[in-house]
Design a protein around this nucleic acid. Structure first.
Lengths: 334, 334
DNA sequence: TTGAATTAGTAAAACGTTTTACTTTATTTC
DNA sequence: GAAATAAAGTAAAACGTTTTACTAATTCAA
C-alpha cells in the first residue's frame, strides 16, 4: 500500500494541492481559504490518516527538524542521561534527535559531521574532540547552529555549555587536604580534551596553593581505548607501589575500575584512604562506604544546551556566543 | 555559502548530471562511462568536497538509510548499551540510527512510529509495549521491516529477539531453593509486558515445581512511573513486615532501590538473606558482598537484531519470521 | 557494405512538498 | 458604473537526486 500524498488529499477534496498545503501548514487564514474548505480538507486528512512526507518537506524547505547529537559513547551513563534530557526537551518542540558515538576517534567524528551535513540536520550538539576544528569551522561558516557541551575547543568560536571542571577538581583536592591527606593521587585519562585537562589543572593548583609538592608519579594517565583489565593492572600497580592516602578519579569509569582494584586487594576506604570520583554513578551511592563524587549538573547542562539551540533556530541571526559554565557539586558520602 | 549540488559538479566537469550520478553510485562501468570521464569527475568531487544531499536521495529512492530505534528509555543502561551495539553494527553497513524513548507511554510510542514513518525510515527496531499493535500492523502491511527485541507482542507476526526470561527467572529461584531458602519474594513492576510476565511466571513455576506454596503477599508490583522514594518506601515495607530470606528483583533499577533499602535498614546480604537482580549493573559487581545477577546477552541480542534487519533490508521479500530466544546467564557473586 | 551490436553519454520525468506569482470573482468606494 | 480592493483559490517552479528511455557515434560480423 503506497502511502498517501498531498495530491491524493487534494483530489479527494476537489481542491488544489496548494490549498491543502496551506491548510496543513496553518496558513489557510492568511491565504484566505474559506472556513468550509478548511473543514472539509481537515476532515479528509483526519479520516485518511495522511501524514506529510517529511523528506519532501525537508528537501523543499531546507530544514529537517532534526538535531544531530555527537557524543563520545551513548552507553556511558553521563552521555545517555544527557541524551535523554535533550531528547525530551527537543521532542516537545517538534525536533527529533539523531545521535552517534565517536568513540573518541577523530575520523569517525569527521565522518559523522559529514553524514549529518548531508542529512541537513538543523543544528549540531557536539561533545567535541581535538582534530575536528576545521570541520566545525565549515559548519559555522555555512551558518549552522553548533553548540559544544561537556568539552570545549578553545579556538572555535561557538557557544559552549559545561561544568566548571577546574573548580570541582580543585575543591575535591581541597577537601582531601582539609581531611589531612598528604599523598593525593590522580587517576585520569590520556585523552587530550579540555575538560580532562581542567580537572588535572585543578588538582595541581589545589596542591600548590596548599603547599603540597606536585609529584608526577602520583598521576596515572590511562590510555583511553584500552581493555579494562589493563587499566586495573595499572591502577593496582599505583596503589601497590606508592604511598597514597587519597585518590581523585577523573572519570566515573576509572573510579569503577579503581574500586574493583580496592576490592581485589582488600583495601578499604576509610580514615586512612579516601576516594572521590568525577561524575556520579549509582554504584557510588550503594557502595559501602558510600563513594564521594562530583556530580555534574546534567539537567542544567541539557537545559542550557537546548535553550541555546532553540534560540538560534528561531532567530535567523546568529546570537552572541555564550560560554555557560555551571558549578559541579561535590557530594560527600561517608 | 550554498552547498554544492550534483549540477555544480556536472557543470564543472562539463558532463551531464546523469553521468555524475552514475559515477557517484558506482554504476559508471555498467553504464559505460569512459575511464577518462570517471577520473575527471571523481577528481572534481574529491577536490570540491561535494557530498550528495541525502534528503533528495531519499525522496527519489524512497529509502533513507536510517533505522528507527524505539525503546523505553535511553538512559537505562540496558537500552543504552544495546543501542550502542546496534549503532555500531548498523554504522558499518552504512545505516544510521534515529532513536527515541517512549517512557512506556502508548501515546508517545504511537507518535514516534508516525514520526518515523513520515521520515521514511528503512526499518524499525522496537522494544514494544502493549497498545501499539494496530500501528505496528500497519507498518508491516506497508512492507516495513519491523523487529521486536527485549519484549514481544504475541499477536503480532514479526521477528523477535530476546533473552529467555522465563528460564532465567526459574533458575534464579531454583538457586535460592537449593540454598535452602523458603520465603522467596519477587519485586517486579506493574507494566504489562511479556518479558516481565515471563519473569513472574518463571518465579511461580519454580516455586510450584519445588513444592513451595506461592504466596501473593511476597510479590510486590511497583508502579512504573513513580518516584524512587515511593518505591523505596514500598520495598521497605515489604522487608519490614514479611519474613523473607531471598528476593528476586525483576529489573536492575528495582534492585538498586532494594539495595538502598537494605543499606538504610542495615540489613546485610549473607547466609540468611539472598538477592538476585535481573539485568546486571556495575554497582552489583562492586557491591560488598557482590550481588548475583542475571546477565542478558546484550551483544548477542544486538547482533541478532541487526542481522535480521539487514537481511530483510537486502532481500526484497520478507523472510520468515524468527523468534530468537537467547539464554540469559545467572552470575553468582558471593 | 550494411545492419546489428556496442560504446558513451544525455534529456527529462519523477519523488512529495512549499511557495511565488497569478487568475477569477465578488465587493467596496467614489 | 468604473476603478480599486478583497476574497478564494490555483498553476507551476523549485528543492537535488535517480533512473528510464533515448541518441549518436563507433565497431563488429557476415
Amino acid at each position: 500500500m503506497k502511502s498517501l500524498s498531498i495530491k491524493d488529499i487534494a483530489v479527494k477534496a476537489n481542491v488544489s494541492i496548494t490549498t491543502v498545503s496551506f491548510i496543513i501548514n496553518g496558513k489557510a487564514k492568511e491565504k484566505s481559504i474559506s472556513e468550509a474548505v478548511i473543514e472539509k480538507v481537515e476532515k479528509i486528512i483526519e479520516e485518511s490518516g495522511y501524514k506529510p512526507n517529511q523528506i519532501a518537506r525537508s528537501l523543499r524547505t531546507g530544514n529537517s527538524n532534526i538535531i544531530g547529537l555527537i557524543i563520545e559513547d551513548i552507553s556511558n551513563s553521563f552521555f545517555s542521561r544527557i541524551a535523554r534530557l535533550i531528547e525530551d526537551k527537543a521532542y516537545k518542540r517538534g525536533y527529533k534527535i539523531i545521535y552517534s558515538s565517536t568513540e573518541n576517534s577523530v575520523d569517525k567524528a569527521k565522518e559523522l559531521i559529514n553524514m549529518f551535513k548531508s542529512r541537513k540536520v538543523d543544528a549540531y550538539i557536539i561533545s567535541p574532540i581535538k582534530g575536528i576544528e576545521e570541520d566545525v569551522k565549515m559548519l559555522l561558516e555555512d551558518g549552522n547552529p553548533v553548540i559544544f557541551f561537556d568539552r570545549n575547543l578553545t579556538d572555535i568560536n561557538t557557544s559552549y555549555v559545561g561544568a566548571d571542571h577546574f573548580n570541582a577538581s580543585y575543591q575535591s583536592i581541597q577537601h582531601f587536604i582539609n581531611q589531612g591527606k598528604k599523598n593525593i593521587a590522580l587517576v585520569t585519562t590520556d585523552i587530550n580534551v579540555e575538560q580532562i585537562i581542567e580537572r588535572y589543572d585543578g588538582y595541581k593548583k589545589a596542591l600548590e596553593d596548599h603547599g603540597i609538592k606536585y609529584d608526577e608519579k602520583l598521576v596515572l594517565k590511562i590510555h583511553f581505548n584500552q581493555e579494562e583489565s589493563e587499566t586495573i593492572a595499572q591502577i593496582k600497580e599505583l596503589f601497590d607501589n606508592k604511598k597514597i592516602d587519597a585518590v581523585l578519579f577523573a572519570t566515573n569509569y576509572l573510579a569503577i575500575s579503581g574500586l574493583k582494584v580496592l576490592k581485589k586487594i582488600n583495601k578499604t576506604i576509610g580514615d586512612d584512604f579516601a576516594v572521590i570520583a568525577y561524575d556520579d554513578h549509582e554504584a557510588f551511592e550503594l557502595h559501602t562506604p558510600g563513594i564521594s563524587a562530583i556530580q555534574q549538573p546534567l539537567e542544567e547542562i541539557a537545559e542550557n544546551v537546548i535553550k541555546l539551540i532553540l534560540k538560534q533556530l528561531s532567530t535567523k541571526a546568529k546570537p552572541e556566543n555564550q560560554e555557560i559554565i555551571i558549578p559541579a557539586k561535590l557530594i560527600i558520602r561517608d
